[in-house]
Amino acid sequence: MNLLLLAAEEGPNNPILPATNEIIWGAISFFLLMVVLAKVAYPPVRKAMEDRTAKIQGEFDAADKARAEAAELKASYESKLAEARTEAARIIDEAREQAEAVRRERIAALDAELAERKAQAEADLAAARERALAETRSQLAGLAVGAAERIVEDSLDEARYAKLVDNFIDRVGSST
């Protein structure tokens, strides 16, 4: 009751009205807080946080870059390796081909030589045979003439003599 009248008489005691001294101290505190925080205390923390973010980001970027480089290097090595491998295969193939060609050439040359030699041998053989035949024939003719001269003792005319020899040779030739 008394309190009620007291409160009604004294405005500032109303519990929902702000008291002057509290406003003053609150205002001083809050504005000081705002100014000091914004100008002095806040920026270093913010800057450190941003620096750290940038640093971590930079490290991640560097790691990514290193990884990409390594992958690139690996790819280049692999491609070089593959290249070398195909090169080797190509060289081997080439060598094989060359060897084959050489072999074939040699065989062909040998074949040709063989054939040539064979032909020459045959020709030689034929020539020797021919020669031997001719020699034999001429010897036989001389022999036959001598024999005939000795046997007949008289000389035959030239024509009959030649005919006789030819007959003889023919007979001898067919018998041999």
């Binding site: 002057t20 001294n21 003053i24 101290w25 609150g26 001083i28 505190s29 809050f30 807080l33 000091v36």
Partner: peptide, 15 residues
Amino acid sequence: WYGLNKIGLSALIAM
């Protein structure tokens, strides 16, 4: 107007 009580002190401490 400059009377400092518990309320004002709490503001100062918060700051």
